[in-house]
């Protein structure tokens, strides 16, 4: 990862989105301090290095907080919004789907998948399979 040039084209944001389009959820890891980073950066926010490489995220995470955005059924109905701590460390905002939105709980294990919102590929989560 030491030859990664975060100031070249395409930049980290474009690389992340291209990977997501092709079905892979990648996060960055700093070659200098080892920190995992999300969202994509040009400079490591933990140590200032530009030696940033890509790793495929495990997709495993834990719900850090959660809310239900209440909305009339005719406007699409209620949906979940949550913060997920990935097992690699970074936290991201997302939705837990395929579960009633008010049954999502802080501390629940979740698994990422790539879905779509507003015709944009995004990382979403489902509750992890028990056991």
């Amino acid at each position: 990862m030491s030859d990664n040039r975060t100031f070249d084209s395409p930049g980290p944001d474009a690389i992340y989105r291209a990977a997501l389009e092709s079905g892979t959820f990648q996060i960055q890891q700093c070659g200098s301090c080892g920190a995992h980073i999300f969202y994509p950066r040009a400079i490591c926010p933990a140590c200032g290095s530009t030696d940033l490489g890509w790793v495929t995220a495990s997709g495993k995470g834990t719900v850090y907080s959660t809310t239900v955005v209440r909305q009339k059924p005719e406007r699409g109905g209620d949906y979940n919004i949550c913060l997920v701590d990935l097992e690699e460390g970074p936290r991201l905002i997302s939705r837990v789907v395929d579960t009633p939105p008010d049954e999502v709980r802080i501390g629940q294990p979740v698994e990422a998948f790539i879905g779509e919102l507003d015709e944009e590929k995004v990382v979403l989560f489902r509750l992890a399979e028990a056991g």
Binding site: D13, Y39, Y64, S65, T66, T67, V69, Y79, I81, C82, L83, L92, I93, S94, R95, I106, L117, D118, E120, V122
Partner: peptide, 22 residues
């Protein structure tokens, strides 16, 4: 806001709601 608005968090309310939930 990249990486946030696409999920529809109804900001700022959703963000503060998650602080309250935590």
């Amino acid at each position: 806001v990249p990486y946030e608005d696409v999920y529809g968090p109804r900001n700022p309310i959703g963000s503060y709601a998650m602080a309250a939930a935590r």
